[in-house]
Design a protein around this nucleic acid. Structure first.
Lengths: 361, 361
DNA sequence: CATCAGTGGGAAAGCGCTTTCCCGGAGGTT
DNA sequence: AACCTCCGGGAAAGCGCTTTCCCACTGATG
């Protein structure tokens, strides 16, 4: 004979998992159905008196709904998934915070997965979240430039969506997705124009790996603004590195290896965490910022204002990015036209930028 | 007549949630039981031939196990919960990364909840995670000093544990929990001794709110080392603020409001993010660091080495803290004696500290 | 050659909920 | 007074899995 968990619990003196709804129902002297309706408000209502009695029993027994069971019965969980490169990176952690807040608002719990920007890991992550039957997936990392990678991710997302999953991406992952789009290109162009306005003509740009789309978009923005001024980056002054502090340092080292005459007067690091590395390396090398070289970043992570010198950058509403993505994904009526929300960026000039260094002075 | 989701799916041309195991079983021409055993390796084995056939069918159909259903059947989910103050804070995001990595190793997915250090929110969070039937909860935020708050949290945790939940805390939440314990007190004492060794005698200490235990422990460490040298902080030089950049700035403002003769030569900010605020404010006020004032932090968050001047601090293995907590919680045999693992800290002296300022010079 | 593990397949009972369907009673219409 | 419609309670069928229990079969054993 099969033994119920209750019996086991009674025998062993240890129940495996919580008070069940039917215990509550029995305690309140009502049916399972009524208990369920009273505690979780279905379409149907329950008589005021009974409802109160059920609620009383529920917290007398310390009832906590079994989320997996609810999920199964409703075929809908109370979770959202977040896919990002690395929670420990301030850019992503700010986004994660936004996602978390918006999810909380909606009564959902966020499940976060670090992909380190690897397409494979990303695909596995999507599958896991799909398996979890999360209500929505927020894809926070940059899209890839490699078509094969894009296809793989798209396929995984398509499967998920085919099963009723909702998706929102942060930054552009193709026209098929609801998306929150910070103006990467425009922001980079604006930043460049701001530096041009300060008088700079000799730029270096430190951007992210070519395999990612976001850094490429930002780079395109820089090029666009430079072109407007009839300029283009000199050979060897566009460095592709990882968007990490170490990446920034590495790029600086390469830049300073060149003869001083070829040093740029302004370096655009297209990610703040990268820029922080740049600042650190320049300081250690004794290069004055902004006297000898202006430095600007991108993202306006919380620390940007506090490093020394305070970092000029392009402000992006990181938390809002995350929060909006959740909202978008949840609202998405599954209609034909995906919602695509462009968020403006804003140049913030602080102490790390100034007038260009003059060789002849 | 009740209609199965299959029928609905066939009629509407849209299935609500994925390929099911029984579809796989049918496709492979085996029973549900066999399919389950083949795909998820139970105690029982399945003939090699059949197993292969099942696996083939599974990925022919693109089968993804329904996690909530598995959770219900097994009465065990594949999730762990992390409760922290704020993912966007580098201290916690590093821990979160560690948790995430260790969870991944164990085939689990992390569910993260921000509590902003509020006991109420913390209790609600624990209840939610309990409801989710997560396998383990990692409590990453500091314990409270208010007994009522502690009781509330303890009660929620006790309920969870009574239902078979596993718990590990980071920092001390009382002797009843498996815990990973960075040596807050010892680290703070060591840091203080290091500054004493540099010749400092006039200290200010900026620590966290009195409602949290961690900042109090650190403060105690400082006091202890000071006492060894026959010193104690002068009146008004111990500032309790939030462990945020703004908190750091605020404390500095209060400190500098005092007559210059009473300015400390060293300020111990007992959290790096706080210290970064201190550095920022001092720079803006034109106070030279470390010339006029040495500044030290605590935690060694990734940025600490890159701010200017590079921050002297107490290194804590943040990611390992998170990872170890997961391991501990999962291993915990539920035996009588909780596992408590003390992790050493290490003083790291960088550019933000130096010899004390001499008034008479 | 009968007996006994041991092996591996399948039927079916749960896991803890939600929701459909049925039904009896109250109130409103002709 | 007969007829309908609401309203709200309860029985029971699922949701998609895991696992127990039963059973048929194989090969070893005495």
């Amino acid at each position: 004979m099969l033994r119920t968990s209750m019996q086991v619990a009674e025998e062993s003196g240890e129940r495996s998992m919580g008070v069940t709804l039917s215990e509550v129902a029995r305690h309140a002297g009502v049916s399972l159905a009524t208990a369920s309706r009273a505690l979780n408000g279905s379409a149907r209502t329950v008589g005021g008196e009974l409802a109160a009695k059920v609620r009383a029993s529920a917290d007398a027994l310390g009832y906590l709904p079994n989320a997996p069971a609810q999920a199964l019965a409703r075929s809908a969980t109370a979770n959202v998934g977040v896919l990002l490169h690395d929670v420990a990176d301030p850019y992503f952690s700010a986004i994660a915070r936004g996602v978390s807040d918006a999810a909380g608002q909606a009564g959902l719990l966020p499940l976060v997965i670090n992909t380190d920007g690897d397409p494979q890991t990303q695909v596995r992550g999507i599958r896991m979240l799909h398996g979890q039957r999360v209500r929505a997936i927020v894809l926070a990392g940059s899209a890839h430039t490699d078509p094969a990678a894009v296809r793989a991710v798209d396929a995984a997302l398509a499967d998920y969506r085919a099963d009723g999953g909702r998706i929102a991406t942060i930054t552009d992952h193709g026209p098929g997705y609801d998306a929150v789009l910070p103006d990467n290109r425009g922001g980079a162009a604006d930043l460049t124009r701001a530096l041009l306005a300060l008088g700079h003509r000799e730029f270096a740009v430190i951007t992210g790996p070519e395999r990612l789309r976001v850094p490429m978009e930002r780079l395109a923005g820089v090029r666009e603004a430079l072109a407007e001024a009839g300029l283009e980056p000199a050979e060897g002054t566009v460095q592709h590195v990882e968007f990490t502090r170490e990446g920034g340092r590495e790029a600086v080292r390469r830049l300073l290896d060149r003869p001083q005459a070829q040093w740029p007067t302004a370096v655009l690091a297209l990610s703040d965490v990268c820029a922080v590395g740049v600042l650190g390396e320049l300081r250690e090398r004794g290069v004055d910022v902004p006297g000898r070289m202006s430095v600007a970043g991108f993202d306006d992570i919380p620390f940007a204002a506090d490093v020394a010198p305070a970092l000029s950058t392009v402000r992006m509403p990181l938390e809002r990015l995350g929060a909006s993505a959740v909202t978008l994904a949840l609202e998405s009526d599954g209609g034909e036209r995906p919602d695509r929300l462009t968020l403006p960026t804003e140049v913030v000039l602080r102490g790390s930028t100034g007038a260009p260094f003059r060789q002849d002075r």
